[in-house]
């Protein structure tokens, strides 16, 4: 449904171009939840912005294309924005106008995208609220009267209003408590099932990835490190970075007290200092000579790692 081919996004800094996303290619299929995971600065949010067509200076797309339902997405074109692709942000207050009731905001959003009369729009808005788990009586309430989790539900209703076929959720639960987070993720899963909407879930939390997504793409320094079915990637990681990330994630386990967590040495390099070759090789426990010299492409449609480039195809 959504196809991204060889996407390069550049960041212009003091007249020079720095690669922020490098040769990114992946697909999103109808009705799936794709997780986009990586550490801060890996390019997760930037990928989301590119898909929704919001790449603006100092960022620019220098290569590649994004195809959505057989149509190419142009940056800064209003045609696509919000109609078939919606976005949910980390902070619900950013997306809500504090001076207007949630009902007004919903109706307005609906009527800009769908040709509805006022009455129809109100009916539809109320049904949306019900769908995301908010009582219809709260239709005339202002955003500040809602708790954080409820606000995020309103934002989800707003995102669903134009009946999008793809929703990009950028860290939708990071600002919320665990119990509320679980509810919101459950809601997203339900919507994905019932409406057959695809969701791109951007997060840094491996636990959220494990419990929510169907497939997962792991980003490192603007490069796709690994992509595949969540079950396979988490149980049989092929890229040393994915492997490290999984082992470094603490688990709820009484026995973990006496052992130490696995730690990946070093930190992700700054965009200005991404090394030649594989961007991960300086932190990689198993790098070979080739890793230092040439950047690995995605091999076996799974992981960008030269270690896969042997007869067995496994680490």
């Amino acid at each position: 449904m959504l196809e991204i081919y060889n996407l390069d996004v550049n960041l212009s800094y003091r007249g020079s171009q720095i690669k922020a996303l490098d040769n990114l290619s992946f697909n999103v299929y109808p009705g799936e939840i794709l997780g986009l995971v990586g550490e801060s600065g890996a390019g997760k949010s930037m990928t989301g912005l590119a898909i929704i067509g919001l790449i603006e200076a100092p960022l620019s797309i220098s290569r590649g294309k994004i195809i959505f339902n057989k149509q190419r997405i142009e940056q800064n074109a209003n045609a696509f924005r919000g109609s078939k692709i919606s976005m949910i942000f980390q902070d619900p207050l950013v997306s809500l106008n504090p001076l207007r009731t949630i009902g007004e905001q919903l109706v307005e959003t609906i009527r800009t995208h769908i040709k509805f009369g006022r009455k129809e729009a109100i009916e539809y808005a109320k049904s949306l609220l019900e769908e995301v788990g908010i009582e219809q009586e709260r239709f005339d309430a202002y955003p500040h009267t809602f708790s954080g989790g409820m606000r995020q539900r309103v934002v989800i209703a707003l995102a669903l209003a134009p009946k999008p076929s793809l929703v990009i959720a950028d860290e939708p639960t990071t600002a919320l408590d665990v119990s509320v987070q679980a509810q919101i993720l459950e809601l997203l899963k339900k919507l994905c099932r019932e409406r057959e909407t695809s969701i791109i879930l951007i997060t840094h939390d491996m636990g959220v990835i494990a419990e929510t997504t169907d497939r997962v793409a792991v980003l490192y320094s603007g490069t796709l490190a690994e992509i595949g079915k969540t079950f396979e990637v988490l149980n049989y990681p092929q890229h040393p970075y994915t492997k490290g990330l999984i082992e470094a994630t603490p688990r709820i386990d009484a026995n973990s007290l006496n052992s130490k967590l696995y730690q990946i040495p070093g930190v992700m390099p700054d965009l200005k200092e991404i090394p030649v070759g594989c961007p991960f090789h300086k932190r990689c426990p198993r790098y070979i000579k080739k890793c230092v010299e040439i950047k690995p492409p995605l091999l076996n449609e799974r992981a960008a790692c030269w270690l896969l480039d042997n007869e067995k195809g496994l680490l």
Binding site: V178, Q181, A210, F231
Partner: peptide, 16 residues
């Protein structure tokens, strides 16, 4: 409730 709500990497969903 906290324990069931906490996302845990152990709970990776089974193959669909």
């Amino acid at each position: 409730m906290l324990l069931s709500a906490a996302p845990d990497i152990k709970n990776v969903s089974k193959i669909p």
